[in-house]
Nucleic acid binder design. Structure first.
Lengths: 208, 208
DNA sequence: GAGTTTTGATTGGCTGACCAAACTAGAAGA
DNA sequence: TCTTCTAGTTTGGTCAGCCAATCAAAACTC
């Protein structure tokens, strides 16, 4: 019963935060949406910040499950025998689907980023959020680089950061403007990344 | 005198907003920072939103000037005779410098993005902001594509969107975590983009 | 002295957090 | 089995504080 109530509050928070945003949502709003007394949200979550973090974690669960269903754990190692390029391709595709299936998650995420800019508690959560996902991209990147004819000048971490950046930058544009063609942007990103990963060796080197 | 006062308020707003963020900054704070009476900010700016937009425009001016100094107008056409690849390279470099020289501008920008998620007035400003800069990237991209041995599958707009995304995604990571190596990420992005643009023709096509 | 700029106090409203009291369910004891 | 007892839940009201925006009046300018 208690756990159910807590869950209901988190879900109500998630819905309300997506709809109105962190600063335009009060604890009372969330309690009302959950159908509980105004004070109860504070019984389960010391501060509004804690509730935001819980709401994000909750909202991310479905996409996490989608990754697991595709055979990938966000934190665990990648399967040894898989083709890294195919993996990368699938990664872009899943990101694309994720954005299409539930833009609300990204809305919530970017809201959290915005709050985190000037809020230490949220900022820590944001950094952890970014680290986890960027590390995941790095793990795929690592495999891809290992198979390249000529290794890139840039480090795995730097490339992963650039790719993470692009994925979230595309989502940002979509969230800000529903007219934006995120699919095309994801395809372009995929085309560039794959072309880079599969380029032949022996080209004149002038970077760095 | 009146214009000076207005300017002083904008500058005070810019400083205060960078330091504390939109929602943690009150009109009184800004007036105090500017050294004027609380009511005056509302004399020049009908709403706090208007002041935020003005502050961002003001904060962006130096980097705009840097671009102009480099021979590029953000809205005008590119010089015909220049090497597009060199132009692209310079673009990444300038973005890198911009982030290093004044991360506050990006802080302000991302704050505006966050507010814009659930605020129609700011949202419109954000879309205009993104459109302008993305169009600029597209203009450079256009030139680069024209010189490619084999044109990409993706459209100019899609590629420009992906690159804009990456630039801002990198800045986001830097703003969220000062330890983040933005330079390396920019270099990685540059390496990938240039490699893609200069790849030889005739490769098996399997995208799209 | 008309028009513009600036002041500073006020207003109406909302917020996060707190808390004392009421309720609930299940364990312990008779 | 029936009755306390208790710990965990839930309620709803309170509170001190802050805010954007307004406005009448003062100061300044030409």
């Amino acid at each position: 019963m208690a756990d159910q109530t807590k869950e209901r509050i988190i879900e109500a928070a998630s819905r309300t935060l997506v709809r109105r945003g962190y600063h335009e949502t009060s604890m009372k709003d969330i309690a009302a949406e959950a159908g509980v007394a105004p004070g109860l949200a504070h019984y389960y979550f010391e501060t509004k910040e804690d509730l935001l973090v819980a709401a994000i974690e909750h909202a991310c669960r479905p996409s996490m499950d989608a990754w697991e269903a595709a055979g990938v754990s966000l934190t665990g190692p990648l399967p040894e025998d898989a083709d890294p390029i195919a993996f990368a391709r699938m990664g872009f595709e899943l990101a694309k689907q994720e954005l299409k299936a539930d833009p609300g998650v990204f809305l919530l995420t970017f809201d959290m980023f915005g709050v985190g800019l000037h809020n230490p508690k949220i900022s820590a959560a944001v950094r952890a959020f970014i680290d986890e996902r960027r590390a995941f991209v790095a793990r795929i990147t690592q495999g891809v680089i290992a198979g390249m004819a000529e290794p890139p000048v840039a480090s795995t971490a730097a490339i992963a950061a650039a790719i993470w950046a692009s994925i979230h930058g595309i989502a940002l544009q979509k969230v800000m403007d529903p007219e934006f063609d995120a699919d095309a942007a994801f395809d372009a990103l995929s085309e560039m990344a794959i072309a880079f990963a599969t380029r032949p060796a022996g080209r004149a080197r002038e970077e760095g």
